[in-house]
Design a protein around this nucleic acid. Structure first.
Lengths: 131, 131
DNA sequence: CAGTATCCGCCGGGATACTG
DNA sequence: CAGTATCCCGGCGGATACTG
């Protein structure tokens, strides 16, 4: 949209009450922003299929219980497929779906942006005064 | 890894433990996935500048306290600019920055995806059996 | 209007123990 | 290995009251 906003825009910034968060977007955001969720998706979309244990170790600090809960939700939402090999011991692998591949596109974009912004912030922080 | 930002008195009530991801992405995700944050950004990036009250009404269910906390963080991270007109009553407007405009790009993508996925899910639900 | 200060209830999520 | 069941605590965030 627009990059620059003038004082006029500020003055006009009144009655926006009618605009709400879109329904499908709202539900999606609610799921994606639960703790660890994006981290899990980020790992799976970059690494490809991962076993439960590997995921558990990669997502440092998460408990088994919560990882299970998150993966179940992601499975319901169609972001991962759960593949079980009933061996002994069992081997459960979580496989990214095409839907997750779609998400990977903009997760990479966000990753690039985060690098760019961090670089900007570091510059600003190490050079607080203009000489 | 993470920039130190201090808004002690305000932030201490919402002091999340840092999620370790090992790159700039981690700190960003940690901020963005706090409750309401993406909703706020989504609204601002679509609507342009909004006043505090309008934002409060648009982000249905959020309390004034938490909205303030979130906006402070977003200001520190450079996603919004806070503009105060010391009239009586005061008029405070939150203005999207170029950085938020960058984010808008992939938020729109995510929005499109969310619509697409919802449509898919509805189809799958109304047509459980393939004829 | 746009916050801030204070209190406090609730539940998300960790820890632990156990199973197929 | 990949979970599930249960208990329990900390702190997130809402509610309320107040101010410039």
């Amino acid at each position: 949209m627009q990059l620059q906003f003038t004082a006029q825009h500020v003055a006009e910034a009144t009655d926006y009450e009618e605009i709400k968060v879109g329904c499908s977007m709202g539900g999606l955001l609610e799921v994606l922003t639960r703790p660890w969720t994006l981290h899990i998706l980020w790992l799976l979309s970059r690494n490809g299929p991962m076993r439960f244990g590997a995921l558990r170790r990669a997502v440092e600090g998460i408990s088994a219980r919560l990882l299970t809960v998150r993966l179940r939700t992601l499975e319901e939402r169609g972001f991962v497929e759960r593949s079980v090999r009933p061996t002994n011991p069992p081997e459960v692998t979580y496989i990214p779906t095409p839907r997750l591949a779609d998400m990977n596109l903009f997760m990479e974009q966000l990753h690039k942006l985060s690098d760019k912004w961090q670089a900007e912030d570091v510059l600003k922080h190490t050079k607080p005064h203009v000489s």
